[in-house]
Every structure is written in structure tokens, then in C-alpha cells.
């Protein structure tokens, strides 16, 4: 990643996956209390890029990730996917964008407890056309890719934290997204398991040429990323390109 302004559009043509330009996001609490969570953030994520977002708690990392994931619209500024501004897209278009282009990995896994690992992974496929057989095959392939071929029929409660996060990763990659967004994916895991999870995400990023944007507190992770964005009070205070 690099600053969209400085690099010049010509050099990066065809490589840009998404672009944030002067993005602000202000939360409203009640009638007249405003919380400016992001106060003007600009950067670009390329195809196959690996970006780490760091910053202290409350600095606006999750807010930024939600905007990149089209879960939310900016108060001002633009988030563009393949050149299209998220703010100009309808709700169904945003839903389809999330379904086809983006995979989410959350700190608390967000698996549905009543479903098996396989059915949890099938979940995003339910919202696109395809036969049951096809969905099943894809889900099983994704679970195999994250090393859970022997845990397909287990429910989340029957899996360790690391295994649950692997199921979540399988769910994120089952749609072949262009971008994986991970919000502190190792935050609920011990450091060794966390290492494994990061290694898995990085392997997917390189092998499948999927862009990876990860919020993290770990220094080593930030160092392995192609670039790091540091947020403080809703502003980018430091960018390090590897």
C-alpha cells in the first residue's frame, strides 16, 4: 500500500482494489453528541496487498475496517471498490459486494452455535445462486484448506478457539473474495495459536493472491505486512511500507 495521492494513478492502474479518500466517520449519540471516529483518512489497497492497521484502543481501527468492508458508509469522503463509490451503492448492491468480494474474520469468531462447521462455512454461499451439492463441495474444500477436514460435522462448542477461528477463515475464503478483512483475529487466542492463525491468513494471501487487511497489536505481524497504517484519534499518524 501507499498513499494514493503521491504514487500517481497511472503507475498503479489495474492494480487498485480499493481506495479510501478523505474518509470521515462521525457517530451520533443522541441528539447533539458527536463522536468523530475517523477524521479524514486516505490510502489505497492493491490487489493481493497485505496491510496491517495498528493503533491504540479507540483510535478508529474497527470503524475503518467496517467502512472498507462496506458494512457502513462514510460520513464524508469516498470508499471506492473497483472505482465505484460505496456511498452511491444501494443496500442490495452493498450486500452483493460483501458477498462476492469480501471475507470477514472477527476477533470473536461469530460462528452460529447451532450449525456444524460445514454449515457455518456454507452460510455466505446461501446468499448466492448455486446447488446444495456445489455449496457443500466448496465448504468442504475450504475447511480442508484450513486443516479441518476431520472436523466438518463438529459444532463450534466442540472446537478449540484456534479451530473455531479456522472455521471462520474457511467461511471467509469459501466465496473466493478479493479481500479478507480481519479485526484482531488473534485477540481471543493464545500467542502460539495466534501465530498459526496469522500464518494461515498469510498463506492464503500469498497463494491465492487475496488482499489482506488485518487489525493487530502484534509488532511482528505489522512488520511482515507490505505496509502498516497507524491510527491515532481517527487520523493516520504513521505509514510504514515494508
Amino acid at each position: 500500500m501507499s498513499d494514493g495521492e503521491a504514487s500517481g494513478p497511472a503507475r498503479r492502474e489495474g492494480r487498485v482494489l480499493l481506495e479510501a479518500r478523505a474518509v470521515t466517520r462521525t457517530y451520533r449519540l443522541g441528539r447533539d453528541v458527536e463522536v468523530p471516529a475517523l477524521r479524514g483518512v486516505s490510502f489505497v489497497v492493491d490487489r493481493g496487498d497485505y496491510v496491517a492497521i495498528v493503533g491504540s484502543s479507540g483510535s478508529g481501527k474497527s470503524t475503518l475496517l467496517n467502512l472498507l468492508g462496506a458494512l457502513d458508509r462514510p460520513t464524508d469522503g469516498a470508499v471506492r471498490y473497483d472505482g465505484r463509490d460505496v456511498r452511491e451503492m444501494s443496500d442490495p448492491e452493498l450486500a452483493d459486494l460483501r458477498n462476492t468480494r469480501i471475507g470477514f474474520v472477527f476477533q470473536s469468531f461469530h460462528l452460529l452455535p447451532r450449525l456444524t462447521a460445514r454449515d457455518n462455512v456454507i452460510l455466505p454461499l446461501v446468499y448466492r445462486p448455486g446447488s446444495r451439492r456445489e455449496r457443500r463441495d466448496r465448504a468442504e474444500a475450504a475447511l480442508t484448506a484450513v486443516g479441518l477436514a476431520d472436523r466438518m460435522d463438529h459444532r463450534p462448542t466442540e472446537l478449540s478457539g484456534g479451530q473455531q477461528q479456522r472455521v471462520a477463515i474457511a467461511r471467509a475464503i469459501v466465496t473466493d473474495p478479493a479481500l479478507i478483512l480481519a479485526d484482531e483475529p488473534t485477540g481471543n487466542l493464545d500467542s502460539r495459536t495466534g501465530e498459526d492463525i496469522m500464518a494461515l491468513l498469510e498463506r492464503i494471501q500469498t497463494e491465492q493472491d487475496t488482499a489482506l487487511v488485518v487489525i493487530t497489536h502484534e509488532r511482528q505481524i505489522a512488520r511482515r505486512a507490505h505496509s502498516t497504517i497507524e491510527l491515532r484519534d481517527g487520523l493516520i499518524v504513521g505509514e510504514v511500507a515494508a
Binding site: G69, L71, D91, P92, A95, D96, R98, N99, T100, F104, H110, L112, L123, P124, Y127, R128, R171, T175
Partner: peptide, 9 residues
């Protein structure tokens, strides 16, 4: 979660 995974309203 379902919305994040692509469910429409």
C-alpha cells in the same frame, strides 16, 4: 453476521 456475509435486507 448474515448481513456481513452478504444477506440482503
Amino acid at each position: 453476521l448474515r448481513k456481513a456475509l452478504g444477506a440482503r435486507t
